[in-house]
Design a protein around this nucleic acid. Structure first.
Length: 564
RNA sequence: GUGCCUGUAGCUCAGCAGGAUAGAGCAACGGCCUUCUAAGCCGUGGGUCAGGGGUUCGAAUCCCUUCAGGCACGCCA
């Protein structure tokens, strides 16, 4: 058992089913077909611990008012040998269940038993899933979009791991094709500009205008001088690319590593060319009738694939497009490496590509629902209430490294995972470094540090936690204690929900709630100084809270400090 | 023009496989430290869920439509 909720749901489901059967047997209800029984946690405490809307769902079939059905079910309900102490009908026909606290006590035992594994579930059953994220072009530094995609992707991967999936984190290196060509042209132009003067050499309109291109050629010239002026253009470009590309890639790897992201696979686009996988893919598409040739180029047929228009795969000049490489890449993921599910994180500016890729998957014989694309909206930085576009220090677009220099890894990862992927994210740079309750990162970390402080103080006095069997857990009856225990019990379900919706942000919000419940408890109840039995029970509760906070923070990828 | 995302309290956002009186944090205001970290807690006020129609016993949630903001519609990636 991973979650105490399973047990409770089973109990309620059984009790309800039996009651309906009994009512039918006695002729109080017509013979109805039971829909899946929905059990939810009511918002209002007065509405019990759990509720079901089954009476409302049966209204149509039974041709009776929901209220009456609820009453009939309640007449037949038998709650012996369950947590349920009371069931009552309310509102338009809800049946509310009130539980005794045993489930909360049992859950503390579950946490004690599972420890750092508490919260893990197994909805994945070992399924092989790839999460591909960031995959930034190695033509420049990582930007805010990469920062958000990185935090999100890594946490989605983490949440899936905790949910029983076999997860591979992958970075797709776009080290081939047109953008590398453009990279070379840009480097070459900047190189010649350095030597002959800026106004003597034109810079290509569609080149990379970033300052980092100039930095590269300056460094190159410092190291190797102007010897490239006398060689053919192709050779010159190649030399500059060979110099700058590995540097960019190293920088990307270093930034991501600093950001706490470790990939399992760095997949090189150029390997798709070397292994002829692009041709292979085009051939297959041809065999399956998805290819048309016109205007000297090779196209994916829009008509056949169910797209609005045809898409170029091989240009007139013989070079494959990004899309051709991407189809081959995904064929590699699914058919060569055997992933049964692939999740890609793309910025909102790529959403137009989703439909095309899904259609392309069908075209190569992969069911499109196996490819899931998480689109995240773009980031705006705020400082002093104003939008910040450029780094103050460098005067260039704010890079991931700039962000980490300014706010640190914890704040960055936490903030990017506070909101759902679909929401436009305003990142408040001032707030992220503020050391106050305005700042949710500190709020949560402070709760953890506070707990550790209690544990330290007790240890100094020589007080050790007893074995769980020797603790009178049922002394925990204060409202703040119950609220905290209920919150802790929700972790496994939260993890599962985060995995199912691919929204780790709900865990971030959850851990804020845990911290809040803990702080309330802390102000209402004492641990040290209470008599031994109560002290032990609270010690267990506090330590369980520590475990929960730590486990969640580890999924988000941030520190759980023991002192602050 | 077409498609996608977004619109909920002053601000930032949850809720959106339809359910009970729409929530949280921040900001504002008023309280709480001789006791385990006040980076904390407790309380108060604050809403035409962008507007309008429809489906339903019931709509912030589903459908249609209008408006506003963002993004995409390339032999770019």
């Amino acid at each position: 058992m991973y979650s105490i909720f399973e047990k409770i749901r089973n109990q309620i489901e059984t009790v309800v089913k039996n009651a309906v059967s009994a009512a039918v047997a006695k002729g109080k209800l017509p013979n109805v077909e039971l829909p899946p029984i929905m059990i939810e946690k009511p918002r209002e405490e007065a509405h019990g611990d759990f509720s079901t809307n089954i009476a409302m769902q049966l209204a149509k079939q039974a041709k009776k008012a929901p209220n009456q059905i609820a009453h009939v079910i309640l007449e037949e309900i038998d709650c012996r040998d369950t947590y349920i102490v009371r069931a009552e009908s309310a509102g338009p026909g809800f049946i509310n269940f009130f539980l005794n606290s045993d489930w909360l006590y049992e859950n503390l035992a579950l946490i004690d038993q599972r420890k750092e594994h508490y919260g893990e579930v197994d909805i994945g059953r070992g399924e092989k899933v790839m999460v591909e994220f960031v995959s930034a072009n190695p033509t420049g530094p990582l930007h805010m979009g990469n920062a958000r995609g990185g935090a999100l992707g890594d946490c989605i991967a983490g949440v899936l791991e905790k949910s029983g999936y076999d997860v591979t984190r992958e970075f797709y290196i776009n080290d081939a094709g047109n953008q590398i060509e453009k990279f070379g042209i840009s480097l070459e132009a900047r190189y010649l500009q350095q030597i002959y003067g800026e106004d003597k050499v034109p810079f290509p309109e569609d080149g990379y205008h970033g300052e980092d291109i100039i930095d590269h050629v300056k460094e190159y010239i410092t190291q190797y001088g102007d010897k490239l002026v006398s060689v053919p253009s192709d050779e010159r470009k190649k030399a500059l690319i060979d110099y700058a590309l590995p540097k960019n890639l190293k920088r990307i790897k270093d930034s991501l590593s600093r950001y706490g992201i470790e990939y399992d696979v760095w997949f090189s686009e150029s390997s798709l060319y070397e292994n002829r996988e692009i041709e292979e893919t085009i051939d297959i598409l041809k065999q399956r009738g998805y290819i048309i040739e016109k205007d000297g180029a090779v196209w994916l047929s829009g008509e056949k694939a169910g797209l609005e228009k045809d898409e170029v795969l091989i240009r007139q000049n013989g070079y494959p497009t990004y899309m051709a490489a991407d189809i081959a890449y995904h064929r590699n993921k699914f058919l060569k490496r055997g992933f049964s599910r692939v999740i890609n994180l793309w910025g909102a500016d790529h959403h137009g590509h989703v439909k095309r890729m899904k259609a392309a998957m069908e075209a190569i014989g992969v069911p499109s629902e196996k490819l899931q694309i998480v689109i995240f909206q773009l980031v705006r930085l705020y400082r002093g209430g104003e939008i910040e576009r450029m780094s103050k220090r460098t005067g260039r677009a704010v890079s991931l490294d700039d962000l980490l220099d300014e706010v640190g890894v914890d704040a960055a990862r936490f903030f990017f995972n506070m909101k759902t992927a679909g929401s436009h994210l305003d990142f408040d740079l001032d707030l992220a470094v503020e050391q106050s309750n305005n700042n949710p990162v500190f709020y949560v970390q402070y709760a953890h540090a506070r707990i550790c402080s209690i544990l330290r103080k007790l240890e100094e006095e020589g007080i050790k936690r007893k074995a769980i069997e020797d603790i009178k857990i049922n002394l925990l009856t204060q409202p703040e204690e119950l609220a905290l225990m209920k919150r802790l019990a929700a972790l496994p379900e939260e993890v599962a929900a985060a995995a199912e919706t691919l929204e780790p942000s709900r865990l971030t919000r959850y851990v804020i709630d845990v911290a809040s419940d803990f702080h309330s408890f802390y102000n209402a109840c004492r641990v040290k100084g209470e008599d031994d039995d109560l002290l032990q029970a609270r010690l267990l509760l506090v330590d369980s809270t520590r475990v929960v906070i730590k486990n969640v923070l580890s999924i988000i990828g941030i520190n759980a400090p023991e002192k602050m």
